[in-house]
Structures are given as C-alpha cells and as structure tokens.
Amino acid sequence: MKKTLAKFAAAVALSAASVIVPAKELVIGFSQIGAESAWRSAETESVKSEAKNRGYTLKFSDAQQKQENQIKALRSFVAQGVDGIVLAPVVETGWDRVLREVKRAGIPVVLVDRGIKVSDPSLYTSLVASDFVFEGKLAGSWLAQKTHGIANVVELQGGPGAAPAIDRKKGFGEIVDEFAGMNIIASQTGEWTRTKGKEVMEAFLKSQGDKIDAVYAHNDDMALGAIQAIKEYGKKPGKDILVVSIDGVKSAFEAMVDGDLNATVDCNPLLGPLALDALEAAIAGKEVEKWIVQKDKINLMQDAASMISSRKF
C-alpha cells in the first residue's frame, strides 16, 4: 500500500513538473566583455537573473576585454550546441568569420549595448542597445526647457572616436541648433574620467569665466569632476552653473541628492529581459527588429532622493 502511494505521488510530481518545464529547456551562451565597471556588472547580472527566471541554462563567459577570448567563447558555444547567443562585443570589427560559423550552425546571435560592423548584416539577429543620439537630445531638450532656450553651454566630451561620444555630441548639438539663444561655447574631451573632467572644467572656467550657464557632460564621472572644479572656483554647481550628464550611475544620484547635479539621462544596463525576448522570438522563428532600442529617460534632481535606493549600478 505504502509503495503504491509513493509511486502515485511520484507520478503526480512528474506530471506536475512536465507541465511547468517546457519540452526542451533552452541553453543560452553569453559572452561578456568583462567586469570593468559597475555598469557592466549590472548588465551581466541582469542577463544572468533574467535567464534564471525563465529557467534557461546560461553558459557565461568573461572575455577580460579581449576579442580573441570572445571568439573562442563563441566557437565553444557552437561546439556545445547552444540554442542562442548573447554577445556584448568588445570592438566593432573582426566578427565576420566567427559569426559566419555561428550562422552556419543555425544559432541566432543578439548583440547587447554595442553594435558591430559586418559585411553581411544577417550575421546577427538583433542589437539591443540605447540610442546615444537620443540620449544627447534628451539632455539638450531638458536644458533648453530649463533655461528657456537661452544658455551658454560648455561640453565635456567622451573619449575621441568612441561611438557614444560622437552620438551624444550629435544629439545634443541638434537640439542646441534649434535655439538661437543656445550656444556651445567650448567643447573638449574629458576622456570619460573624473580627473580629466575636472581639469578641463578648470580650464573652461579660466577662459570663459562667468559666461558659462551650463555644463553638458557625456558621462556622469566627468560631470562629477566638473562639479568639483565649479565648487573650487567659488560657484554653486546645480544653481549658478547647471550640470546635466548621461549614464545615471548611483554616484550621480548622490550628487543630485546633494543638489550639485541637475539631471542625468539613463543609459540603462539592465538589458537582460529585452535581449532574451529577442532571442526567444528568433529561436521560435519569428521576425525580430534589427535594432531594439532601450527606452531611456531623464532623471531630475527633485526625484533623486526617492530613486537612489533602487539604483543597482
């Protein structure tokens, strides 16, 4: 009697399990660049936790900033017969050959946060990333509204030649051009860092002085450096000189709570859900958009205090 009861229970458990688990559990490979910043760690975590939620098996590979490691990882994913691949490419070029191998194996590839240059765009399924031009526009629009369209702006650019720097400059410039009263009076690279951002802002304050109404920085770190320079110059950042930047990292929220930073545009690293949605659709044979845009928004000083605790990066 006991035995049959146990058998019965096992059968119930089995049938229940078969209801929850899909016919074939998906196996996904994720080749990540590395863990060089909090932003990237947050992105990794987002893909990992989303895969876990969906019951996927995730094969994770950290390339430690090297393309050759990523290429090796992709080949091993093919050898292991994964169902789909998520790739955060460390550089733009040099992917043709390995992606052709992946395509031949019939495995869809979704790129996250950065694009690549390939001779044949069908080598990858989709790119899930923010629109850097839009981010620049968002920052510019906020500034135009805040200053009623009249402002002398200094710009701290990202690293020369980097796609986010080029696009964030372009988007912001397009908005500024719409307003006759808005001018970018100085623009130099702060190389994405606090130290350089501070040094460049010091020089701007010496050469432009009281003319400066606002600072636009391509990332939060440079804005934080500029804020220090403004303070040391004897002005109040966030009030005498408005400061707006991009990325929305936690330390930027801290600066907003302190009243030093006016606004920061999100460049959200939590791309896991969108990327896995795209991959799932591709595996199911559905049409997927080539560029799935992460919808970024701008965060303002007055809302910072209530949002800061939920910032993960």
Partner: peptide, 15 residues
C-alpha cells in the same frame, strides 16, 4: 595641454 584646453582647439586635432 592647458593652452589647448583654453584655446578651444577641436578635439580631433589635440593629439
């Protein structure tokens, strides 16, 4: 470096 920064030389030419 400081001269380049204060004179507003376009970033592409700095190096």
């Amino acid at each position: 470096t400081t001269t380049i920064l204060t004179h507003g030389l376009p970033v592409q030419y700095t190096l």
